[in-house]
């Protein structure tokens, strides 16, 4: 039996995909849901071929806390002894499984793209956000795995079945309350790097903080936002929250416009999921130019204003 950790109220597509590839019965686990919520989640899971939803209940599981969640899951794993536990490779999914791994002494393979079952699982995991792939072998009585962002969604339609709800009451020491969330601030509305359909990014070739004004203008015309490379952040031209890359934000817009960015691997892995990339660079051999869909050879400060002027000439204006 495989146990999947829900990402909110449903399984992440990559997690279901890995579970399907491994085969066999699938159970799911949710934290701190009441009866009504659990029944609703179970109804959704039934369509995805999940047979049992285990709801973990305890006063410490009301809001997220990595230690309480990790310990509760560790106790459920001890009770059920599943063949494997799969979670999404998200902030919380990865963290919960890391705590479960630490508390059970089990190995954990994070960011897996594919898994093949057997006494030892053969898996391919993403290293460095996608710079390298690692083929690895996971040998443990219970295999703990997180699915990479790019892991394949399930290919076949799952066989619909009854999904029953089973309650599990973990025994959690009160001291684990120490790492619970004390406050949550939702992100303000509006476009963000992660959600914008167009991102216009600048790197070393922009040359200064002031140089981004024309990129802002182009982004405004295309209904997008401005991003930057690590060089720009390190030079203090843009805040780190604008940084696209392995240690910044991973983006997947319809169009990524990379202005004066050579494309070190650390940047590439942050933008490689863009549907189209337009690179503007003085160096036609720059790695990002070679990997782009479209390219213009030239200085950012000549090319971008000309594009803005051409858009204006064709009647494109902000909000219009």
């Amino acid at each position: 039996m495989l146990l999947i950790v829900l990402d909110g109220t449903e399984p992440a597509p990559g997690v279901l995909g890995l579970a399907q590839a491994l085969g066999g019965p699938v159970h799911a686990v949710a934290f701190g849901r009441d009866d009504d919520a659990a029944a609703e989640i179970a109804a959704g899971l039934a369509k995805q071929g999940v047979g049992v939803l285990h709801t973990l209940r305890h006063p410490l599981l009301g809001d997220y806390g990595p230690e309480a969640y990790g310990e509760a899951l560790a106790q459920l794993v001890g009770r059920l002894r599943p063949e494997g536990v799969l979670a999404a490779g998200t902030d919380h999914g990865t963290e919960i499984l890391a705590h479960t791994a630490a508390r059970t002494g089990l190995p954990l393979a994070t960011n897996c793209l594919s898994v093949t079952g057997g006494p030892r699982w053969q898996l391919t995991r993403v290293r460095g956000g996608g710079m390298l792939l690692e083929d690895a072998e996971l040998d443990a009585p219970v295999k703990l795995v997180t699915a990479a962002q790019g892991a394949e969604a399930p290919s076949e339609t799952a066989v619909r079945q009854e999904c029953t709800v089973e309650e599990f009451l973990p025994d959690l020491p009160q001291e684990l309350a120490r790492s619970a969330i004390v406050e949550r601030t939702p992100r303000g509305g509006g476009l963000t790097l992660a959600t914008a359909p167009v991102v216009v990014s600048g790197g070393r070739g922009v040359g200064s903080a002031e140089g981004y004004a024309v990129l802002e203008e182009l982004a405004g015309l295309l209904g997008g936002v401005v991003g930057c490379s690590r060089v720009a952040t390190n030079n203090g031209w843009r805040p780190h929250s604008d940084q696209v890359g392995l240690t910044g934000t991973k983006i997947s817009p319809r169009l990524y416009v990379a202005c004066g960015i050579s494309g070190a691997t650390q940047h590439w892995v942050g933008c490689m999921d863009s549907r189209a990339i337009l690179a503007i660079n003085t160096d036609p051999d720059a790695p990002l130019v070679q990997r782009a869909t479209y390219a213009v050879v030239g200085d950012v400060h000549e090319v971008v204003p000309a594009i803005v002027a051409e858009l204006h000439a064709r009647g494109v204006h902000p909000d219009g």
Binding site: T293, Y294, A295, A306, E310
Partner: peptide
């Protein structure tokens, strides 16, 4: 990539 031209002259193609 698909080359769209050099410098400001590439703007219409872009």
């Amino acid at each position: 990539p698909v080359w769209l031209g050099r410098g400001a002259a590439a703007a219409p193609a872009v």
